[in-house]
Write a protein that binds this DNA or RNA. Structure first.
Lengths: 355, 355
DNA sequence: TGCAATTTTCAAAGCGCTTTGGTAAATTAG
DNA sequence: CTAATTTACCAAAGCGCTTTGAAAATTGCA
């Protein structure tokens, strides 16, 4: 059954050529006649010969592997919901370039140790940093280890001299907040990601900047930082909507809490888009499409899968030419108006009276 | 910066020992004095020596790597939503056992080629089969290739002589359907996964078995097979609820279409759990927790992360002892009653009149 | 035709580990 | 106190590739 596969020695003897020539033929080196190369390639196909990856990696000194570390909080048992789509995008690029993707699932407290080990074992040629925190220590670590890496996102204060691909989070959240202000909303709740996440900081800054530019007071009681679950959206919105001085609009950092907010709104007997407005950041998760002529949610959208592709390509380029200038790329999110937003009730009242 | 790491030769010279002894000390072989072993281990820590994984793999002939193939449909750009949680579970086990996880993202049409290549390159010691279809050809392929593998799920007709870990899908769906029947529902819609998926077949069979055991006619117009998105749930429920002879209950194959159904119900001005009942299969996705004293949805729950752990362990065991009897494990889903179900309106009316 | 330049092929030396088949030292037995 | 084990270590031979340096075959040009 398990027909032990042929090795280069056997295969080249079969062809009556040396191992050198066969190896060169397979790897596209010029020192081999075109007719010989074709003969080799045909024979490889016919006899189902594939060079052994383990031997190849040792001989070349390259792992042809990119590492992704997926930290899983033992307490929350939470895994980043955008992870699957991001990795689907990155994986496409790896496949196209002959790289493997090594995924290391680790308890979040031993994340740094995991990076260290991957590098010192020589298991990877490069690493992706997911979900950077404010002043993330992994950046210094990886620089010290001297391994190529690209950050998906940025880390405040130190956004120079390392590669990153990020969405313009501040601008995106400033825009959606202004959009709500233009509709007459004044009490706008922000359901943000965990406070130590870099993206959450930038989004918060965009939200605050928008309010301040219109002289609307920033109310800390309307700003929330939590893991972006559906329940977070639901519980927070339920509480706010049933209290005094309820917000008329919500800004959510992901469609997932957005769905929870929607549930709370309808539980309260209200209508989203009329009584309460909601905007979200839409990562274009594949199973929650928020598109079409009139999407369910007004959103700033930026495909996380596309980000995955860009990050992967940037890393592959960096591995090829480690001395090239660092790749820093800012993606802009697109603001799309859906059915979840409308004029603030107070404004509508005023306008109606004016008739 | 990139202090090229030490190799065994240098490290053993530094210790004044042979490479053999150092290697044996590190790998826990008995032919080395305990005091020597400690010396070696200490020195390894002090000088930050880690054996090179590439060399180790070549020397041992083992990849110490498990392959997961993630097919991504180029048309739908869809990635299985349970994938992230499953892999988080499996990855825990791999980490604990010194295995790496190789994730191969491929266009769904070239999935088989991807398995072949991983095996013939010797990149993996074993493979996980995700999302088996009815009569899935990958099982025969992997058996032919002679590589250890475990299927997450099963494939109809051929559920003997290969390793699998599955949820008792038929029983779960039979139970929830009976549960709805007990509440007086007679028109029950089924929002199932794609028709060629094995799990969908089994769930459909459970649903049908329940109806037949109560002599309720099976209406094909109430059975749907699609990719399990939120929109699938929304559009299907919207259409059904606005038509004649609308169902009074829905069974959904995942919480995601369940959320869409909930949205359609509230859009229609109805109340879930009173006017329309909904039950779901709950994979316990980390960002959609459906737990607590009274979960939002009545559900049959089976943690996909737990399944990932079991599948991974089964594969590791199989790699260690390939001739052991095949591991076949059936997980049972737990039925938990939440707020999304209640008596069928018709039954309630009858009972109310009887008062 | 002859000799240098070029193209094509080859033998052998790594890559950094593990593992086999020893040997010297330490221990036990007689 | 010597012989027979056992223990603790070592030198060297792989693992299956790539790549270097050299040789053989082919080509170019006078």
């Amino acid at each position: 059954m398990n027909k032990k596969s042929m090795n280069l020695k056997e295969f080249s003897e079969l062809l009556g050529l040396s191992q050198t020539t066969v190896s060169r033929a397979l790897n596209g080196y010029p020192e081999v006649r075109e007719s010989t190369r074709l003969k080799v390639l045909d024979a490889a196909r016919a006899h189902n010969y594939t060079p052994n990856a383990r031997a190849k990696r040792l001989a070349t000194g390259k792992a042809m592997t990119i590492g992704h570390v997926l930290p899983v909080s033992k307490k929350h048992e939470m895994v980043n919901p955008i992870f699957a789509d991001f990795i689907a995008g990155a994986g496409e690029i790896y496949s196209d370039n002959g790289f493997d993707l090594l995924l290391s699932v680790v308890d979040d407290v031993s994340e740094e140790a995991s990076y260290r080990k991957l590098v010192s074992r020589g298991a990877v040629d490069g690493l992706i940093v997911h979900g950077p925190k404010v002043n993330d220590s992994r950046i210094a670590l990886l620089r010290e280890l001297g391994v190529p890496f690209v950050v998906h996102g940025r880390s405040t204060e130190i956004d120079t001299d390392y590669c990153w691909v990020d969405v313009n989070n501040k601008r995106a959240f400033q825009r959606v907040t202004e959009f709500l202000l233009d509709l007459g909303h004044r009490r706008i709740a922000l359901l943000n990601g965990l406070a130590d996440m870099d993206f959450a900081t930038r989004r918060g800054a965009g939200y605050v900047a928008a309010l301040e530019s219109r002289d609307v007071a920033v109310d800390p009681a309307l700003m929330f930082h939590e893991e972006m679950t559906e329940n977070f959206g639901y519980e927070t919105a339920r509480r706010l909507l049933s209290g005094d001085n309820a917000p008329t609009a919500f800004v959510a950092s992901s469609i997932i809490p957005g769905i929870g907010i929607r549930r709370a709104i309808s539980d309260a007997g209200l209508t989203m888009g009329r009584d309460v407005s909601v905007v979200i950041h839409d990562d274009a998760l594949s199973y929650f499409s928020n598109d079409g002529d009139e999407p369910a949610f007004t959103a700033v959208r930026s495909s996380v899968r596309q980000a995955g592709r860009h990050v992967a390509q940037a890393l592959i380029d960096r591995i090829a030419t480690p001395d090239a200038p660092v790749h820093q790329e800012m993606l802009e999110a697109v603001l799309t108006v859906g059915r979840s937003t409308g004029q603030a009730p107070a404004l509508r009242q005023v306008l109606d009276q004016g008739k």
